[in-house]
């Protein structure tokens, strides 16, 4: 799983986004990705897998009272986007996604044929 540089498609949309921080773990059976997307409700999270690219997008929705004047902003954009290139041994048909308290957890299993197999060495 390697991160792609900004794709032509993304820059064509011409809007800057935040890049959510992620953790990526791999074990024998698959890959687990955690992404921080605070402020994004479930309905505003979009996950897309196209050929071998995983795209995570989310829009921040906050309860902002009418007439509020911003006075200090560390989060400067209301959108997140980040994409990853998936490798071929990953089974994109069986991705499991959970999204709770602004943390996305994606589990991408490895295809059965790509699971590690121990090769027996026979000594004759």
């Amino acid at each position: 799983m390697s991160e792609t540089t900004r794709t032509a498609a993304a820059s064509a949309r011409n809007d800057a986004t935040l890049i959510p921080p992620v953790d990526v773990y791999e074990d024998a059976a698959g890959i687990t990705l955690y992404a921080d997307l605070p402020g994004v409700p479930k309905g505003r999270l979009a996950l897309n897998i196209e050929v071998d690219t995983l795209m995570i997008e989310g829009e921040v929705m906050l309860d902002i009272p009418a007439g509020m004047e911003p006075s200090h902003a560390e989060v400067g954009l209301p959108r997140y986007r980040r994409s990853f290139t998936l490798s071929r041994e990953l089974d994109v048909e069986h991705v499991d996604a959970r999204f709770e308290h602004g943390v996305l957890v994606l589990r991408i299993p490895k295809a059965a044929h790509a699971q590690p197999r121990k090769v027996e060495v026979r000594v004759d």
């Binding site: 921080d36 200090h72 560390e74 602004g102």
Partner: peptide, 20 residues
């Protein structure tokens, strides 16, 4: 967490982005 702050005449609104 990262923090955004805004204010209205009646109140100060503080948003702390603290996922998970």
């Amino acid at each position: 967490p990262t923090i955004n702050v805004g204010s209205t005449l009646q109140a100060v609104e503080l948003y702390a982005f603290a996922p998970g």
